[in-house]
Design a protein around this nucleic acid. Sequence first.
DNA 1: ATCCTAATGATATCTAGTATCAAATAGCGT
DNA 2: ACGCTATTTGATACTAGATATCATTAGGAT
Lengths: 143, 143
Amino acid sequence: MRNATDALACLQENGYRITTTRQAVNDVLYRLKGPFTIEELSDALPGIGRATAFRTVRLFQDLGIICRVNLEDGSARYQLASTGEHHHHFICTECGVVTEFIDAHIDQAVNRQAQGANFELNAHTIDLYGIGSCCSKKCSTNS
Amino acid sequence: MRNATDALACLQENGYRITTTRQAVNDVLYRLKGPFTIEELSDALPGIGRATAFRTVRLFQDLGIICRVNLEDGSARYQLASTGEHHHHFICTECGVVTEFIDAHIDQAVNRQAQGANFELNAHTIDLYGIGSCCSKKCSTNS
DNA sequence: ATCCTAATGATATCTAGTATCAAATAGCGT
DNA sequence: ACGCTATTTGATACTAGATATCATTAGGAT
Ligand SMILES: [Zn+2]
Ligand SMILES: [Zn+2]
Ligand SMILES: [Zn+2]
Ligand SMILES: [Zn+2]
């Protein structure tokens, strides 16, 4: 997903209607900088019902437009997917920034582990928690 | 965590009281076979308040006695940790069985990825979803 | 046995998400 | 442009999962 019109095209391609509501949701996705809760998204869209906010997030997730981020405490955030492809997350526990990464080497090791255990792997999630470069820079200058 | 008394020792070592409630929770952990919801745990302990069930699960989790399992849909299950050490999960989407595994190779690849990205890694979770040997065996004999 | 603090249970409250259903509207054929 | 119909929406109510409050209970040290 590069720009805002891609999401609308994606809706159309999959037989979903391009409604003013979905356009409005799509627009705020680009204004909300970081990961957001659906409550925050809903607040940013006063005219739009809460249920529809949940529905639209679910739909956009299914279409790969946004992805779900699992925080360490188990709570969920959502964020524009920089790419629709399989990826994993760096989650900065300092400022909340989430960055995607792709690592074929890790995925290979995961596949090998599954094969060795006779586990028919269908999906996997990998989330890394710590201090991102976004925050470690600030810290080093402070001290 | 090998046997039921280890958890009690662990409580004591960390300055927590060994109460009848905590003993009762610990006992059912060994009776509940697979991963459980806190609701299920609470139901198995009629004399014990719901809030205390949540509190005790949280405490046991902090002590490494049980570990949290994230299902694909984001819901949580809990399970006796077979070891207090760092590990990852095979989660059978067929029957719900969760198996722990340790893989130094994956962890190495994860650390390398974090270092390369200048990410100060503090924790990570890796969950594999698919059909475990528990269920694939049954399927092959049926067909 | 006494004392003090940690732990508990009941209750209320909160958050995240879903179910229902009548009203609105996108997109299509004309 | 117009009307039709299935999709989408919003309001509302509801559920599940979890936390906050606080008076009461009980562990365990002395
Ligand atoms: Zn992967
Ligand atoms: Zn950061
Ligand atoms: Zn690991
Ligand atoms: Zn299984």
